[in-house]
Nucleic acid binder design. Structure first.
Lengths: 157, 157
DNA sequence: TTATTAGTTCTGCAAAAAAAGAACTAAAAA
DNA sequence: TTTTTAGTTCTTTTTTTGCAGAACTAATAA
């Protein structure tokens, strides 16, 4: 399979758009896309600056962001002081898990609200309680999903 | 249970922060919080302007946003031309479902990337494939989660 | 020691997002 | 018909975010 530079650029932009829509900072999705498509899958700071046609500061800050999200990390090689950044494919379970933190936080707030509300509007309170249960179900089922994933990984190797 | 205005304001702000962290527009989380705590659980436009100490335009646009997310809707009463906005507790399954659209979009991008990549870095490709499987597992398990939720709701009524 | 490399941090500036306030609209009321 | 109500939309201002480029830092190399 020969993939042209143009094709890669196009795909990087598409990944950028998906991430953009999800609220990522503008460069973050494209940088992630670049690393996703990179051959070899680890690239230097300068290669990213070059490919993304962005400033060093923009790349540095975007890397900081993606590292905080555990989406990107880097490796080094003896006798070479460059860092080789790569998509952190091993840590992706954690990445997705982190995204679900919102559920936990929001569930807590709903719980607090239920403790505060009067009993004057039982139907609404019930609806709110159901939302609480929805979050609870997600939280409860998460380990099962991870387990299913582990099984799926085994099958596919 | 008597809950002071101050206590409610505080809780609204806390809900605002949780939503903020998740990328909501600034007013959206607070407006949602206000409706979550509202007694009765439906409030007029003016009550929201008043409570949130924001302009009518800010409230109008925020309502538009929350309605698009299916987080808020409104009811009307005969002989009263006001709209009574409320948290759409019934539609929350859809709200959470919508948030998972990112998984579907991202999975598709990962799939496309796998189709483009060479076989030169099988370990990385495997990692990427595992991410694909993670998304797939979530997508597969979603109906089961909804079903579990339905069961939980029955138990708690 | 001085110079180079591999980034990071700081200083503005430009673009985008959010908010305010005014102008507007559609329906109902007077 | 005019007025009021309940919002929406438009215009301007303010705030926030993102970026570039320069200055800086820490480590290596010459």
């Amino acid at each position: 399979m020969i993939t042209t530079e143009a094709k890669i650029k196009e795909q990087v932009e598409k990944i950028g758009v998906v991430c953009d829509k999800d609220g990522f900072p503008p460069l973050a999705g494209r940088l992630l896309g670049f690393l996703m498509l990179a051959e070899p899958p680890h690239k230097t700071f300068d290669e990213m600056v070059d490919f993304l046609q962005a400033s060093k500061s923009a790349v540095s800050n975007t890397l900081k962001f993606l590292e905080a999200q555990k989406m990107v990390d880097y490796i080094t090689f003896a006798g070479d002081r460059k860092r080789y950044f790569r998509m952190n494919v091993e840590g992706w379970g954690q990445v997705v898990g982190q995204r679900l933190d919102f559920l936990v936080n929001m569930q807590e707030k709903v719980k607090e609200v239920l403790a505060i509300r009067t009993t004057d509007h039982p139907e609404f309170n019930q609806g709110l309680h159901n939302i609480y249960l929805l979050y609870q179900t997600f939280i409860d089922e998460l380990p099962r999903i991870i387990q299913k994933w582990e099984e799926a990984k085994k099958k596919h190797t």
